[in-house]
Nucleic acid binder design. Structure first.
Length: 597
RNA sequence: GCACCCGUAGCUCAGCGGAUAGAGCAACCGCCUUCUAAGCGGUAGGCCGAAGGUUCGAGCCCUUCCGGGUGCGCCA
C-alpha cells in the first residue's frame, strides 16, 4: 500500500527534493528539524553532517551554497529558502499552504489525521485495563484503561486490525481465598445490595485473619487447587463471583466509553497450562525441582521464576506465557502489547523470554510491555484496598461530573453559555470524564502520578476542559454564521475564492491565522508518532497546542464581524477546520467534544 | 546486593544529538458596550541532580556517583 501523503508530508518531501536536486547532498544525510519558535521558518535542515560528507570545510558556507543553489518550483508549498548559520531554513508559501491544509481537513473530516497505510490491516493485540474479579476498580486501574483505550483508537486510526483484550484477573489463589471464606462462613455475597463491596470486604477480612493464623492461607491454596481441578461447587461459586463483578465493571467502562473486542480472562487459558508446562519441560526450558515445583532459570541476566508450584497449581507467569502463545497461534499479530503497570516489568521480561526459549521467537519479538508509574496519594504512599485508603474509580467519575455540573450552572447563571437545561447532564459527563482521562494522558506514562483531587479536576490551562471549551467556541461561531446568509465564496467551498485569483488561504496571512493552520497540518504527524511510540500524550499535546493557538486567534481576529465578507468566509473556514481538528484529537484520546458548554 | 524507571522554573510536566531550554499551575500587573473572560496579554521565576567523557555541537549519548520510586519463584 502506498503511504498516505498529507500537506505536511508533502512539505517535508518538497524540502528533501529541493535539497537533493542541488546535487550537493544525498537523502541519507537529510534529517529535517523543527525550527525554534523565534526563527521565521517552518522546517530546518542542519547541514553539519552533510557538509562533512561533502568534504565542505565550513558548514555556514555550505548552507549558503545549498540555499543559493535551490530553485523553488512555481506552485510548491515552500515559499522561501534561507541559510542561517549552519542551517537551511524553509518557510511555507502562506497562501498555498493554507489552501492545501483547509482543503484536506474539509475533505477528510472525521478521518483527518488518520493514516491507514501505516498499519495496513495487520493484526495487533492490545491488552489493557485487566482488573481483578471480585475487586472494585480504583484509581490505580484508570491508567491502564485510559492509556490502553487511547492507544486502541490511535492504532485503529493508523490502519491496524486491533484486538482489544481485557485480560480479567479471574484466576489464581485469590479465588481460593474467597472460596475458603465463603465456605467457612456459609456466605452469600451475591444476594447483598452491593455484591462487589461484599467480596472486597470478605477478601480483606480473610487476609487480615490469615496474618494472625497462617494456616488459613493453606486452606485458600487448597481451594484454588480444587477450583483448578474442576470441583463443581468451586466452579459454580467462582462463576457467580465473575458475573456479579462484570455487571459493575461494564457500567464503569460504559461511562468511560471504553471498548473491548475480547475479554478472555486468565481462566480461559487454563486448559492450555498443563500442556504448556509439559512442552517447557520437554524443550528443556523448565525443570522439575526436588519439591515438585517447575522452575525456569535464565542464566545470570534474569532472576529465575516458577511455572508450577509444588502443589501442582499454576502461577501468573504460566498463564501469561500461555496467553502469549495463544495470541500468536490465533492472530499472528505484528505487535502484542500489554498496557500494565511498571511493577510488572520483570514479570513480562520473564514471560517473553520463556516464550522465546520455547521457540516462539516471532511472538517474543512482537511482544511489548507498555508500562506506567503507580498512582499514589499526595504523600507518595500507594493506595491500599486493605487499609481502606483506595479511591474507587466510580467515586472519581461521580465527583468529576458533579463539579462539571456545578461549573456549567455557574456559567448559565452568568449568561455565558447557550447550553440548555436538557443538555447539561450529557455535557457534564463529557467534561467531567474528559477531565479525568486527560489528567492521565497529557503526560508520559513512566512517571508515577500523585493523585490529587484538585489537580485531576483542574480546569485551567492544559486540561481537557480548555480544549473542549475552545471547541465549543468554534461551534458557537459556526452556528451563528449559519444564521446569516453565506456569501457565494463560502457556499461553494474553495471554488469561489479561487476564481478571484487565490484561495481563501491567501487571506489568512496574520501570524495568528498562520500559526493555527500550521498546527492543524501536523495532526497526521502527531498521530503517527503516537503510534510509533505508543504514546497518547503526543496527540494530547498536539490538541492542546491547537486549542491554545486558536484561543489567540479568537482574541485577535474577529470572524463574524471581519472587515470584508471574503475574510469572514476565509476565517470561518479556519474555525471550521479547527473545530474538526480539536474534535479529532479529543476523539483519539477517548474524550468527547461538546457543541456547547 | 542486583535490575529497571524517574531527577529540567516554587509545583505538575514538554523538550527527534542542533540555533536564545519551553508550557500549565501558583504569584504579581493589565484586558469584557464586540463571535462564550472556562479566555487573552504581560512581569517574575533555570549551574536541566553532580562529576567526568564522546561530538563541530549534549537537557538528550557513554561512565561513575548522589537522591526518589519499583521489582527480584511457590501472590497477581
Amino acid at each position: 500500500m502506498e503511504s498516505m501523503s498529507y500537506t505536511y508530508d508533502r512539505l517535508r518531501d518538497e524540502a528533501t527534493q529541493l535539497l537533493t536536486a542541488t546535487g550537493l547532498v544525498t537523502s541519507e544525510h537529510i534529517t529535517l528539524a523543527n525550527p525554534k519558535p523565534n526563527i521565521p521558518a517552518d522546517l530546518a535542515f542542519p547541514v553539519f553532517a552533510a557538509a562533512k560528507a561533502a568534504g565542505a570545510g565550513n558548514p555556514n558556507e555550505f548552507a549558503q551554497r545549498l540555499a543559493s543553489d535551490i530553485v523553488l518550483p512555481e506552485n510548491g508549498l515552500i515559499g522561501k529558502v534561507e541559510p542561517a548559520g549552519g542551517f537551511v531554513n524553509f518557510a511555507v508559501d502562506p497562501a498555498r499552504y493554507a489552501d492545501s491544509v483547509l482543503a484536506e481537513v474539509r475533505e477528510k473530516g472525521d478521518t483527518f489525521g488518520n493514516d491507514p497505510t501505516v498499519g495496513a490491516d495487520r493484526n495487533l493485540i492490545l491488552e489493557y485495563s485487566s482488573p481483578n474479579i471480585a475487586r472494585k476498580m480504583h484509581v490505580g486501574h484508570l491508567r491502564s484503561t485510559v492509556i490502553g483505550h487511547s492507544l486502541y483508537l490511535i492504532l485503529k486510526a493508523l490502519g491496524y486490525q486491533v484486538t482489544a483484550d481485557n485480560h480479567l484477573g479471574d484466576w489464581g489463589t485469590q479465588f481460593g481465598t474467597l472460596l475458603a471464606a465463603i465456605d467457612q462462613e456459609k456466605l452469600t455475597p451475591w444476594n447483598d445490595p452491593d455484591p462487589v463491596q461484599s467480596l472486597v470486604e470478605i477478601y480483606s477480612r480473610f487476609n487480615n485473619a490469615a496474618r494472625e493464623n497462617p494456616a488459613l492461607m493453606d486452606d485458600a491454596r487448597a481451594w484454588f487447587k480444587k477450583l483448578e481441578d474442576g470441583d463443581v461447587w468451586a466452579r459454580e461459586t467462582w462463576q457467580k463471583l465473575i458475573d456479579i463483578t462484570l455487571v459493575e465493571f461494564d457500567r464503569t467502562y460504559a461511562r468511560l466509553g471504553v471498548h473491548f473486542d475480547t475479554t478472555h480472562g486468565e481462566s480461559y487459558f487454563e486448559p492450555m497450562l498443563g500442556p504448556l508446562i509439559q512442552e517447557a519441560l520437554e524443550k528443556g526450558v523448565a525443570r522439575k525441582e526436588d519439591g515438585g515445583a517447575v522452575s525456569v532459570h535464565f542464566d545470570d541476566k534474569l532472576p529465575s521464576c516458577l511455572l508450577q508450584k509444588s502443589d501442582g497449581a499454576t502461577l501468573y507467569q504460566t498463564r501469561d506465557a500461555a496467553t502469549c502463545i495463544y495470541r500468536w497461534n490465533t492472530y499472528h499479530p505484528v505487535r502484542n502489547i500489554y498496557v500494565v503497570g511498571a511493577e510488572q516489568k520483570l514479570h513480562f521480561q520473564q514471560v517473553f523470554e520463556i516464550v522465546r526459549r520455547m521457540g516462539y521467537t516471532e511472538i517474543a519479538d512482537a511482544s511489548l510491555h507498555i508500562s506506567f508509574g503507580a498512582v499514589t496519594d499526595a504523600t507518595g504512599a500507594r493506595f491500599s484496598m486493605r487499609k481502606g485508603t483506595a479511591i474507587f474509580l466510580n467515586e472519581v467519575l461521580d465527583e468529576a461530573i458533579e463539579r462539571a455540573i456545578g461549573t456549567i450552572r455557574e456559567k448559565v447563571a452568568e449568561g455565558k453559555t447557550e447550553i440548555t437545561e436538557e443538555e447539561i447532564p450529557e455535557v457534564a459527563e463529557m467534561v467531567g470524564i474528559g477531565t479525568v482521562i486527560y489528567a492521565d494522558l497529557y503526560q508520559g506514562p513512566e512517571r508515577g502520578i500523585k493523585f490529587d483531587w484538585d489537580k485531576i479536576m483542574a480546569w485551567d490551562g492544559n486540561t481537557s476542559l480548555y480544549i473542549q471549551y475552545t471547541h465549543a467556541r468554534c461551534r458557537s461561531i459556526l452556528r451563528k454564521a449559519a444564521l446569516t446568509p453565506p456569501t457565494p465564496s463560502f457556499a461553494s467551498g474553495r471554488g469561489g475564492a479561487e476564481e478571484r485569483g487565490g484561495g481563501e488561504g491567501s487571506l489568512l496571512i496574520t501570524p495568528e491565522e498562520q500559526v493555527v493552520l500550521k498546527q492543524l497540518a501536523r495532526l497526521p504527524h502527531a498521530v503517527r508518532e503516537a503510534g510509533e511510540k505508543f504514546l497518547p500524550a503526543t496527540v494530547a499535546e498536539w490538541t492542546y497546542n491547537l486549542a491554545r493557538e486558536f484561543a489567540r486567534f479568537y482574541d485577535k481576529c474577529p470572524v463574524l464581524t471581519a472587515p470584508t465578507p471574503e475574510l469572514r468566509d476565509a476565517r470561518l473556514a479556519l474555525v471550521s477546520a479547527t473545530a474538526q481538528g480539536l474534535k479529532n484529537g479529543l476523539t483519539l484520546l477517548g474524550i468527547g467534544a461538546p457543541e456547547r458548554m
